Computed example of a mutant assay.
Amino acid sequence: MNPSGRTSVFGAVHFGYVIIETRRFADWRRFGADAIGMHHEDLDTGLMRFRLDDQECRFLLRRGPAEDVVATGWHIDDHATFEQIEARVRAHGVPVREGTAEEAALRGVERFLRFPGPKGITQEIYTTPVASAEPLRMLASGFVTGDSGMGHIAITSRRPTEIRGYFNTVFDARLTDYIDETISGFKLKVRFLRVNERHHSLAVVGVRGLPIDPIRTRVQHLNIQAATLDDVARSYQRVFELGFEMAQSIGQHTNDKELSYYARTPSGFEWEVGWNPIVIDENTWQPSHHQGISIWGHTPVGQTILHRLDQFRLGARSLARPEDTVPALSGAGIPDD
């Protein structure tokens, strides 16, 4: 049970897939398959998928103007928990829709439900992923998924406590820790939320002190976990050799100890490839504060004042898109610990 007296779904939820809308299919094919090293599959001229493991789809790319993440999928362990989450969402008056059989097939799942999520990112839940019989064709030796899910997603928000409230309401997400960071004179707090043993499946960067959200896209970055340190190093080299922009050099984070780098995707948000983050022991873990994102490294690559000005120019577009936190599921938000 959690403090509200309801049965918790924590531990039965796993970050499962991402849907990206883009027109830059050729660039994404080179980025995902040739640079990062994932398994690539063209479905037709307007649809493309990447795999990390035996699940048919981990990233679904569809043709469209957003150049952004438009939906995230969450693997739920069993039908009882699936129905429990559905009931929670419906009880708050939030509409829930069932995907069509064709949509489910594209995602590599038997069936799924969708409902509104923060920042306009649709949230989808499913219970049964479809395993592919096709052997993986990847430059990487492998990626870590399984019980921890496939990695994490990071977003910026002017209303971070409401984002935390949303994921607590829907998935019983727990606070792992905070990081305080100062960027260009602005003090930011990053909240790391977990739904299972993975250190975090969601990172929320509070930007309330900034005049605008500096990130044009709904997501700041996506993360996948490489199986070996060699996989990280080799993909880092391929990103450079293929001419993709490197956002941050290799470094190690203060809180989850993951060693990683950040590349710029063809759609503009960042893509983190990491290795060996700590795994949370629920019996002993206590949330804590850390000062600074990294122990070492993670320095901006090729950043000049013009790059920074351009970033804020692009970020200004976020002013035209009000930030929706889905108030019915966010409650009053959760105060900072």
Rank of each mutant, 00 (worst) to 15 (best):
I250F: 07
A80L: 09
Q286I: 05
E197D: 12
T72L: 15
D42Q: 14
G120I: 12
G268T: 09
P266F: 05
I36F: 04
M48N: 04
H199Y: 03
A173P: 12
L61G: 01
D213C: 13
R29Y: 05
F115M: 13
R63Q: 08
Q248C: 04
R208P: 00
A263F: 07
L314G: 09
G117F: 04
L47D: 03
V301H: 11
V144S: 01
P65Q: 09
Q291C: 04
W285D: 03
E282V: 05
I278A: 12
F171T: 01
R24T: 13
K187R: 15
E323F: 10
A33D: 08
D54P: 07
H290S: 06
T299W: 12
P266V: 11
V130F: 03
A91V: 06
G209V: 11
D34T: 06
T127W: 07
G268M: 08
L306W: 14
Q225C: 11
E83L: 13
I212C: 04
W285P: 03
F312V: 04
V9F: 07
P118V: 12
R216L: 14
P300L: 11
T325N: 13
W275E: 15
Q84C: 09
E124A: 08
V279C: 05
G16T: 08
T128I: 09
A227S: 13
R51C: 05
D27L: 11
R159S: 09
R317L: 14
Y178C: 04
L113Y: 00
L43D: 06
S141I: 03
L222Y: 02
G108Y: 00
L136C: 06
M150T: 07
E282R: 06
D177H: 13
T100Y: 03
A105P: 00
G209P: 10
S4C: 06
T299Q: 13
E270I: 02
S330N: 06
V273K: 00
G108D: 05
G206E: 15
S249L: 04
D230M: 09
P211E: 12
Q225G: 06
G297R: 01
E162Q: 15
F192K: 14
Y262D: 14
Q303T: 12
R264P: 04
L202K: 06
Q303F: 15
R137G: 00
E86S: 10
A227K: 15
L193T: 01
Y17D: 04
T156R: 02
L47P: 00
Y166N: 10
T122E: 15
R158E: 11
G73A: 11
T254H: 11
P266L: 03
S260I: 09
R90T: 12
R88F: 01
L175Q: 12
